[in-house]
């Protein structure tokens, strides 16, 4: 088991290293950072001045190593736009996004797991059709639009939840529903087809031939097998929610990492953007690793 984790950890670290290089070069080489700060209409002299002022005239490799070694000393660079160390921005904004990510995954679980189970147990029934309908709808609704419609409904018709801001947990209810809904189709379908496959598997026929039936058959013999892939997908989805928070946070005016990312992009604040891209990637890799470990732990066939 330890060996397995170590192996995966090496992959994660090397991917992280690659991504740090990719992001840095993409944002400092493909895009001219001096031009980005100065703006499109800036004069050549202005751009040159900025280049000197920020040190962009030095070799890109040297700047990368400075940036990358800085990360390990807790120095993530200084934001041009906010005039603050990037690390303090991250610390300020992270709690909102973590709350949002956790709550939205809970929403996904609460909707998709029971619905997927019921649909699989009654294929082609009314509940199956409703579940499929929800999946098709949730897959086709643009996230930001769903947010706006929620605001419209909850501000005008049924004002029970606040529609903007991040002061209390209540403020997170609507955003979590919106962000959570985007994962519902995938997780529900996985739950449904997974359980359906298991129900038709040979070993369930064995259990039936031994006399098991009804809920006992489903819970004792089928559910664990069907939940295995779902658990790891949920972990991955949780990782995805951080990068996916951009839209929801800006619609509901939540001051989290996603909104920070959008504002930094619009302000051409490259130090903040590159750190955020890198941090989101690392978070994703971490949850991916967690999913692998969970899977190996839960599935005896993968245990070492």
């Amino acid at each position: 088991m330890l060996r397995f984790i170590a192996g995966r950890l090496i992959v994660v670290l090397s991917v992280g290293l690659t991504l740090s290089i990719v992001t840095f070069f993409l944002l400092n080489y493909v895009i001219d950072p001096a031009q980005a700060i100065a703006g499109e209409d800036a004069l050549f002299e202005e751009i040159e001045q900025i280049r000197e002022q920020y040190g962009f005239d030095r070799s890109i490799t040297i700047r990368y190593f400075e940036w990358f070694s800085g990360i390990f000393q807790g120095d993530l660079g200084i934001s041009y736009y906010w005039n603050k160390p990037v690390i303090s921005l991250l610390i300020d904004r992270a709690p909102e996004t973590i709350t949002l990510a956790l709550m939205s995954v809970s929403v996904t679980i609460l909707i998709s797991i029971p619905l997927g189970i019921l649909a699989a147990l009654n294929p082609n029934s009314l509940i199956d059709r409703i579940a499929l309908g929800i999946a098709v709808t949730a897959q086709a609704v643009p996230n930001f639009w769903l947010g706006l419609i929620m605001i419209l409904i909850f501000a005008l018709a049924i004002p029970i939840f606040p529609v903007s801001g991040d002061k209390t947990l209540f403020h997170f209810v609507l955003p979590s529903i919106v962000l959570g809904a985007s994962s519902v189709p995938a997780v529900m379908r996985l739950m449904r087809t997974g359980l359906l496959d298991v129900i038709n598997a040979d070993f369930i026929r064995t259990a039936r031939s031994s006399g098991f039936y009804g809920w006992r058959l489903v819970f004792n013999h089928a559910l664990r097998n069907a939940l295995l892939p779902v658990v790891s997908v949920l972990a991955v989805q949780l990782g995805n929610k951080f990068g996916g928070s951009v839209i929801t946070e800006s619609v509901f005016a939540i001051n989290g990492l996603g909104r920070l990312a959008l504002e930094s992009i619009l302000g051409a604040d490259i130090p903040t953007v590159q750190i955020l891209v890198f941090v989101f990637a690392i978070i994703f890799l971490f949850f991916n690793l967690l999913a692998d470990i969970l899977n190996a732990y839960l599935d005896p066939r993968l245990r070492l």
Binding site: R205, S210, G211, N225
Partner: peptide, 30 residues
């Protein structure tokens, strides 16, 4: 009825074994 059949007959009075031993047992239970 089904309930009595499963409780009284299958696995108790009438048992069945199948062709594919590789998939006939639940992989996640001992």
């Amino acid at each position: 009825d089904n309930k009595n059949f499963y409780k009284e007959i299958s696995g108790k009075k009438i048992s069945m074994i199948f062709q594919e031993p590789m998939t006939a047992l639940n992989p996640v239970h001992t």
